[in-house]
Write a protein that binds this DNA or RNA. Structure first.
Length: 460
RNA sequence: UCCUCAGUAGCUCAGUUGGUUAGAGCAUCUGGCUGUUAACCAGAGGGUCCUAAGUUCGAGUCUUAGCUGAGGAGCCA
């Protein structure tokens, strides 16, 4: 039986059963030994009580922090204060011992930086157990939300041949020799010899393909790995991360904002309803205001302002910013933080950015100088969602592509959807790890993904 | 990529204006304790002071370069 079930089942008392897991701590003396056993099913461990004289001494010696064991025994009410039930051990199996001289996890005091160096073992800590369970619950909640709302899960490609997705540096995918690739007469690499007969990369976004799906199934979403080869060294960036990108036909920018707000709130609500123990643990250990902050998001409407209004607020704030506030220049982190944390003190959605600072596919407004982009800004982590209404007009889209000198020949299929049965449509991208970061209250994105990939780090 | 800070025992850290044999807590090991709660009590072992070069009679400490990590910025989700 799993530890979570035992702890939740009053009827288990008096029954004989088997629990398997890893030892968190061991206490006691020659006569009685207490073990905290955890199998990852819950943040809580179950206490195993061993009457030491009943077992061989060398077996007891193997019961150390980190060892994997199975315990057969009777569940009894615990006379101790800290737990309601415990297992009185009749039989002990050691599946795998853990040499206490060399096992790096101890009973107390590990920095998150140290745990990153032992990412193969950190899932065994309370902290990472909690994070990984919350991460799972949120992934499940995302699929549930979309399924319940008539969206179809679309699998967009991970290898892409278009380098015009416009979201950053890409990782090349190739089977050509790194030391001696075939070359053309001008010395450049001959990608026609490559596996796909052209230069290919890992995707930086499934959006363009997502739009193709939306213009057929009306509502789709993607949820998959995304790769950016930017040399970003921050607590909010990964080279490999998971992104959720809903794309909806017949949604205008306001519908898009409604969805983004309802979606985020439903995910936070799901976590509060289903991950209470883990959230309480993280609140106790790392972030005393975590649950209040999550509840606050649920209880308040996101502020909706245009970029132009944001600029006015910042100019009139009297605040001294390092970067000058000026219409036409993108909002800096310090500006976003001011809006979210000082001015409105709640999530803010900013729309209608100058077209020159946003991607080619965003729908152009009639004013000729702004586009219907939208960013959702959260306290602590900044931009959690970026999205827009898409330009559905063939001529406007085409002229924007040529203005920006993008390779039109690689985008023929994207353009063609505007030629045949085009429709107003919108969508956005949510960084999954940023969501998990916010909901767990952790400070560094490398601690909310099991095996982070960042510049100079692809260990494990 | 830029700026700032850090790197000393398995982990977290202290180490004074450069000066004898580099310390503490936790962990580990040994001993003690029949109900512990990050158990407790006593004792012991444990160091390439990130690497390289330099200054100096003498460097954990100062200088330079590099490596690694963290924070801030940019890019963005």
């Amino acid at each position: 039986m799993r530890v979570k079930e035992i702890l939740q089942s009053p009827e288990a008392i008096g029954k004989s059963l088997e629990a398997k897991g890893w030892i968190r701590t061991k206490r006691g003396n020659k006569n009685i030994v207490f073990i905290a056993l955890n199998d990852g099913s819950t943040i809580h461990s179950i206490q195993v009580v061993i009457n030491a004289p009943d077992f061989p001494e060398d077996l007891i010696r193997q019961l150390t922090t980190g060892a994997c064991i199975g315990i057969k025994g009777i569940v009894v009410q615990s006379p101790g204060k800290e737990q309601s039930v415990e297992i009185q051990a009749d039989d002990i199996t050691v599946y795998g011992s853990a040499n206490p001289e060399t096992y790096p996890l101890q009973k107390k005091g590990h920095s998150l930086e140290f745990l990153r160096e032992i990412a193969h073992l950190r899932p065994r800590t309370n902290t990472f157990g909690a994070i990984l369970r919350i991460r799972h619950a949120l992934a499940f909640a995302i699929h549930k939300y979309f399924n319940d709302n008539g969206f179809y899960y679309l699998h967009t490609p991970i290898i892409t041949g278009s380098d015009c997705e416009g979201a950053g540096e890409m990782f090349r995918v190739t089977t050509l020799s790194a030391s001696n690739p075939p070359v053309l007469k001008d010395g450049k690499v001959d990608f026609s010899e490559d596996f796909f007969g052209k230069e290919t990369s890992l995707t930086v976004s499934g959006q363009l393909e997502g739009e193709l799906g939306a213009l057929a199934l009306s509502r789709v979403y993607t949820f998959g790995p995304t790769f950016r080869a930017e040399n970003s060294n921050t607590p909010r960036h990964l080279a490999e991360f998971w992104m959720i990108e809903p794309e909806m036909a017949f949604y205008e920018i306001d519908d898009n904002m409604d969805l983004a707000e309802d979606f985020l709130k439903s995910l936070i609500r799901y976590a509060l309803d289903h991950c209470r123990d883990d959230l309480e643990f993280l609140q106790k250990m790392y972030d005393g205001e975590l649950i209040d902050r999550l509840t606050f998001i649920l209880d308040n409407t996101f502020e909706r302002i245009t970029y132009t209004e944001a600029i006015d607020i910042l100019v009139q704030s009297g605040e001294k910013f390092e970067f000058q506030v000026k219409w036409g220049v993108d909002l800096q982190t310090e500006h976003e933080r001011y809006l979210v944390e000082k001015h409105y003190k709640k999530p803010v959605m900013v729309t209608d950015y100058p077209k020159d600072i946003k991607a080619f596919y965003m729908k152009q407004n009639d004013d000729g100088r702004t586009v219907r982009g939208m960013d959702v800004l959260f306290p602590k982590i900044g931009e959690i969602i970026g999205g827009s209404q898409r330009e559905e007009n063939y001529d406007k889209l085409k002229s924007r592509i040529s203005e920006l000198k993008l390779p039109e020949k690689d985008l023929w299929w994207y353009l063609e959807t505007r030629l045949f049965g085009t429709a107003p449509h919108s969508g956005f991208g949510l960084g999954f790890e940023r969501l998990v970061l916010f909901i767990t209250g952790m400070g560094n994105i490398r601690d909310v993904i099991p095996f982070p990939r960042t510049p100079k780090n692809a260990e494990f």
